[in-house]
Amino acid sequence: MIISVASGKGGTGKTTVATNLALSLDNVQFIDCDVEEPNAHIFLKPEIEKKLTVNIPIPKVDESKCNYCGKCADICAFNAIAVLGEKVLVFSELCHGCGGCSLLCPENAIAEAGNKIGIVEIGKADNILFVDGKLDIGEPMSPPLIREAKKYINTDKTVIIDVPPGTSCPVIEAVKGSDFCILVTEPTPFGLYDLELAVELIKKLEIPFGVVINQSDIGDEKVEQYCLNLNIPILMEIPFDKDIAFEYSRGIPIVVKKLEKKQNFKNLYHQIKELVK
């Protein structure tokens, strides 16, 4: 089973829920797809065994073959190629690496050169298989790196995916293919607003989902009310706890400090299993 942990709003506790869930179960693989700011490794402390370079294909035009027909510029949805008279310009930072231009070129004048965007790291944290993606600084496009990290999914395991915040392309790339999505939120107007966006997104992807409310005893009741109104299961509530916050700031997960809390995360998993049936 693949469980993704997402949220609309950033900083609600995705990584907290994802890492503690991973530490509370057996036979787990953890994939940190929050490639712009991967931080699950701080809590899981994996030993990295392999670091793999991830490239995206950028068009390289052989002007001796090119007849400047301009098809490549026409097909490019991101305007990464311009054909000006007898000159071709490639704007590699705009290229999404789809390969459409080289596929369509009638003269076979476009080859693809690799452009490094980041790395995928593979390792182990005790019994947890660990994978994360790290996007290079300044790289604007994370989906190809997320796609690469997800190639290492091992479906013999319970796979837990830490998703980037928001509701745009990187989130969709990370969440799609999941059997269940946990949406972590907080009981504040910001939390609710972004939760509503995330719910819309997950419904479009047709993935079963439920909500975890972090710092559930501070803030207001509107998130709870929203979930009740829409029949969205509230899977778990994590009350505010200064001890948890303190340990978190030192990179220590809840269930490492308070072993008894593992049961809460095991319950979370069992509820998900029931909902996915």
Binding site: A73, C76, F78, N79, A80, A82, V83, L84, G85, L89, F91, L94
Partner: peptide, 15 residues
């Protein structure tokens, strides 16, 4: 209304 690379596309158009 294009999302990105609009300057390039418009420059191509004008050229």
């Amino acid at each position: 209304h294009a999302t990105g690379g609009v300057g390039i596309r418009s420059a191509q158009f004008v050229s």
